[in-house]
């Protein structure tokens, strides 16, 4: 067996060397272009304002959804034809309802690490749009006090048809909370990192991250008599990222219901139920099917 491993490694070493040599011969270190940096992303919108064009991307196809949306932006200077590498970008989402308007939880915009032209942030949309009621997102490019470009669009936001990854609820403290699952996007059998954002509504236009709560998880398979997995780690607040982070164990592929209990900093349950033989699901949960 060791011998086989040894031969295997020699084989792969030769293979690797061959590829390295041939590729080195063709061209030297390749310049990473702006186009390279968005490989794998799907373009959602192209917004032109004056001398600038905002390109809006997301990872998957389809519309923006109610819940967590990771959004990527590239900004092009149409005069020079170059992408802006040091932009200060901001955005603001607003829901226009027939009787009133409100915002939703969203992040600031930051540069994606190890890229020159790519920026990202997220929205947690809390309702879908339709013909009468629509989301309006305003993108701003500023330099110091000057606004260089400001553009507004009306993205389509739909209810997710897939599994539940977002939940809003009213806590026992009568506060509205918004809980959105970020990871895992591609769950695997074994130990997964699980992350989520938790926000609360302060007023119609202000949604703030909640700190130092705990999100307890109890993953279950309803098709398997509520089979569960061992050694899960509840989500706790990580102040550097603003995320709640934990560990989720999945013993097999298939449909999992991640039952949730949200406890505040004083350990009071704001929402959620423990699973027992009679309570087979919590009032709040996420779903995975893989």
């Amino acid at each position: 067996m060791k011998l086989i491993k040894k031969y295997k490694s020699i084989f792969f070493a030769i293979l690797g060397l061959t590829i390295l040599l041939t590729s080195c011969n063709k061209d030297d270190v390749k310049e990473v272009t702006a186009a390279d940096e968005v490989v794998g992303l799907q373009k959602v919108d192209t917004l032109i304002k004056g001398n600038y064009t905002f390109y809006i991307y997301k990872k998957d196809t389809g519309n923006l959804v109610v819940g967590y949306n990771e959004v990527y932006i590239q900004l092009k200077n149409n005069v020079t034809g170059k992408y802006v590498e040091d932009a200060t970008l901001s955005w603001k989402p607003l829901m226009h309802m027939t009787m009133m308007s409100h915002a939703c939880p969203y992040s600031t915009i930051s540069k994606v690490a190890d890229t020159k032209t790519l920026y990202k942030g997220y929205f947690i949309f809390i309702m879908a749009s339709d013909d009468m009621e629509y989301w309006e997102v305003t993108y701003d490019y500023t330099s110091g006090k000057d606004t260089l470009a400001e553009v507004t669009n009306r993205p389509t936001v739909v209810q997710s048809t897939g599994k539940i990854r977002y939940k809003s609820f009213k806590g026992v403290d009568n506060t509205s909370y918004f809980l959105a699952l970020v990871e895992p996007t591609t769950p695997k059998v074994g130990t997964n990192d699980i992350t989520a954002y938790l926000y609360k509504k302060v007023d119609m236009l202000t949604f703030n991250p909640v700190q130092n709560y705990t999100v307890e998880i109890d993953p279950r398979m309803p098709d398997m008599e509520n089979h569960t997995s061992p050694s899960n780690v509840n989500l706790t607040y990580d102040s550097t990222t603003g995320l709640y982070k934990g560990k989720l164990n999945l013993t097999m592929t298939g449909y999992w219901k991640i039952n949730l209990i949200v406890r505040d900093a004083s350990n009071t349950i704001q929402k959620g139920d423990s699973i027992t033989s009679t309570t087979t699901a919590s009032s709040i949960y996420f779903e995975l099917d893989f």
Binding site: M1, D223, M224, Y255, D289, F290
Partner: peptide, 22 residues
């Protein structure tokens, strides 16, 4: 395992996870 609810994906696991013995 094939769930009764056909909308859910089949549940897969290794019962002997490709065990090797030398």
């Amino acid at each position: 395992m094939y769930p009764k609810d056909a909308a859910n994906k089949p549940m897969f696991m290794y019962t002997w996870p490709d065990i090797r013995t030398f």
